[in-house]
Design a protein around this nucleic acid. Structure first.
Lengths: 220, 220
DNA sequence: TCGGTCACCGGATCATTGATCCAGTGACCG
DNA sequence: CGGTCACTGGATCAATGATCCGGTGACCGA
């Protein structure tokens, strides 16, 4: 009784808020991946009981949605314009970097992304394309093409077991080599060969898309 | 005792095999979505105990991996060539159609796809590009660009609450309209406006990618 | 100063689910 | 005919998302 802790549980825990929960969720996701995130583990890290989290958040999915939106804040929106191609390239590159920095996000991409940060990036994309002179149907096609391309790339690369999943990666290569005669082209030129060139490949594809968009604008 | 069922449980159940399990898993996924798939429910549909499934399959994830690979068998690989652009277009369009026909697949795209059906399609893609004359780094960029583009598109469109999720879709539109002043370009030209033109947009983006690939081949 | 409200917290508990233990069971073989 | 072996499933376990309900203390108006 005399020694009853004056403040909260932890040493200096700031007073638990929705933001703090999401923040901790992101670091937990970064550290251990999507399937290791449970409400109990999250609560423990925050120095509270798992029940308490439900006061600030309705369901676990909410935490995931919020975490997903939070990392999109890291994608910085070009302040001053250097031309639409440069602006869009910067945005898309930043977007991709975030997806790769938080590989768990790939698994969450299948839920509707309507958070403010995501919307702000989409807004910038649309606005830039409009300013560049894009009109329908090229406008929508451009916006979607670019988004889909980044998302697909991020998903693909985050999925592919590089770095961390050494044994899984080994297994995959082994798998391909074992079926070499079934997939000759794949075995000879597949992802495991030119493995480090994700960046080059991504940049090339992006160029193609931008060229197509530019041609569409000019030709209109 | 006298009336002991001669065959198995159900009327005419064929003798439960891994294939039958996966097949039923796909129809269950099609009918109710990814989160309604549990081993118990799956077993019940098959007229067996849930335990039995584990004799044919190691984990639930195996079922998901197998189901994902199974639907890729629906993507038909062009038998005789009509030129590399046409061939690739056919493959990619088929691929996209499958992703949209089985929306649950979007959520599973984040796991490594190494099943035979997936690999066979990748093989065809690489082989076609090689035959068209693509060389590195354009080869990898092309293969990845195309794959990423379909995957992203499928994910995006399957995610976006169309048709089925009426209320969710309404909510999303409402959400955008409510923040109209924050996202002017998005509100004016966003996805909810030109909503039906997924196909056109997809085709346009695909054209851009193919044009870029073609230019890369020619210029080499 | 006092009583009460209310934002916030958490132990106990429930239902669901993936997975395993172990005891069958019957077809087939030598 | 005895035994092996592919196959089945009831009971059970541990983990997890979520809820019930009883605290607790800061603050506020009287």
């Amino acid at each position: 009784m005399w020694l009853r802790p004056s403040a909260r549980k932890g040493r200096d825990a700031p007073p638990l808020s929705r933001d703090r929960i999401v923040e901790e969720a992101v670091t937990l996701l970064d550290a251990e991946g999507a399937d290791r995130l449970t409400m109990r583990r999250l609560a423990e890290r925050l120095g509270t009981g798992s029940t308490t989290l439900y006061w600030h958040v309705k369901t676990k999915d909410d935490v995931l949605d919020l975490a997903l939106d939070m990392i999109f804040a890291e994608v910085l929106i070009p302040a001053e314009s250097r031309g639409w191609r440069a602006d869009i390239t910067a945005l898309i590159d930043g977007w991709r970097a975030v997806l790769l920095r938080h590989p768990w996000s790939a698994a969450l991409l299948s839920r509707p992304m309507l958070g403010p940060n995501v919307l702000a990036r989409s807004e910038f994309l649309y606005a830039t394309l409009l300013r560049a002179g894009a009109v329908e149907p090229h406008l929508t096609a451009a916006a979607y093409g670019l988004s889909n391309y980044v998302i697909g790339s991020g998903l693909m690369q985050a999925t592919w077991p590089t770095g961390a999943g050494q044994e899984a990666r080994q297994a995959a290569q082994e798998h391909l080599r074992a079926h070499r005669e079934s997939y000759p082209a794949l075995a000879a030129h597949g992802p495991h060969v030119a493995e480090a060139d994700w960046d080059t490949g991504f940049a090339l594809g992006l160029t193609w898309l931008l060229d197509g968009i530019q041609a569409g604008i000019a030709g209109k």
